[in-house]
Design a protein around this nucleic acid. Structure first.
Lengths: 176, 176
DNA sequence: TATAGTGGTTGCGTTCTGCAACTACTATAT
DNA sequence: ATATAGTAGTTGCAGAACGCAACCACTATA
């Protein structure tokens, strides 16, 4: 994989510029999916197992993920490196653009909306929390829920609202 | 091109997640390359003509570029839309990551370095200038050189420095 | 009338992607 | 001991995307 040029934008595109790598990272970061099966079955876009296997190898080779030592057939845990944690601003920028200029579902858009509303400090907070989860950094004390808890709460609220609306009759919630 | 999911990150990846689209946009934005031949011959990564033609069609379809009306064999000028201008933060984030975590050449890295050093306001300044160039927005008055002139100067200085160093003898510049 | 320049298109071989089935191993329950 | 479920992948194969070189249709200039 010799680089096509010395441009830093190209250097990033060569590693991350395909239809799956950034989605795998998204699921590792926001979904806290650390195992092959979790990434495979949890992917809303439906990644194929051979593609996932290939991307995990590439991301490890690029120094974005590390793979815990595990023999074949054993649970192998993937962790973000600092290099991987630093892809969050890229994912954030992509999500903001998608939110503004592409269609999408309300549930999934709510997470991006919250991140943007909270401002740049929130991204730093998320990255700090990723260092705790993936790099064994000492936890920082928050008052109140952590950044990922707030994201999950926003997502759950939007999901409930979206699934409630069509099955609510006379203000009474019905079974889905 | 039905979306694989309603996630805004995925929505952006579906449009921009390949090995060429963002590099074409980089050349339109930073190199001010507006014509097919300029993009083709100016590409440092060496894009093929059929790939470039395909990407221009896709970027126009996605509402990122517009194509000036021109018959076959006539110069057709491509312009950024507001949607296209708003990809700058994505390109900026990718470049920052590439600068930090991937190797590259000093000349090409200097532009990214300057953008980062100047801070977020500089990105806004660049986007404003793109609106002038591509959307016929009224020019904003600056004192001193515009943002792209500053970038080009940084690039030229780094390029000179890189090519000067080995051919400078006794402090006197020699012909390359 | 020729030459250079415009924006592409066409063949053709290579690489990447995606689906389904399968492999090899471990852990747990019977 | 044997069956079952769960782990992380691998393999085969077909179709799509990519990349190189050559070519096309048109315009402007000499």
């Amino acid at each position: 994989m010799e680089p096509r040029s010395g441009c830093p934008i190209n250097a990033a595109v060569e590693v991350l510029g395909d239809r799956w790598s950034l989605l795998v990272l998204r699921d590792v970061i926001f979904g806290d999916r650390r195992y092959f099966r979790a990434l495979l079955t949890g992917s809303i876009e439906g990644i194929a197992s051979n593609i996932l296997a290939d991307r995990l190898v590439r991301l490890v080779e690029a120094g974005i993920l590390t793979r815990g030592t595990a023999a074949r057939g054993q649970r192998a845990r993937y962790s973000l490196t600092e290099t991987g944690i630093q892809t969050l601003p890229i994912i954030f920028a992509l999500g903001n653009w998608g939110l503004d200029w592409r269609p999408g579902s309300d549930e999934l858009r709510s997470r991006q909306q919250l991140m943007r509303d909270e401002g740049p400090a929130f991204i730093e907070e998320l990255m700090d929390e990723l260092r705790v989860r993936h790099l064994d950094a000492p936890p920082k004390p928050h008052d109140g829920p952590g950044p990922f808890e707030r994201l999950d709460a926003a997502y759950a609220a939007a999901g409930d609202a979206a699934s409630e609306r069509p099955v609510t009759i006379g203000g009474v919630r019905r079974a889905p």
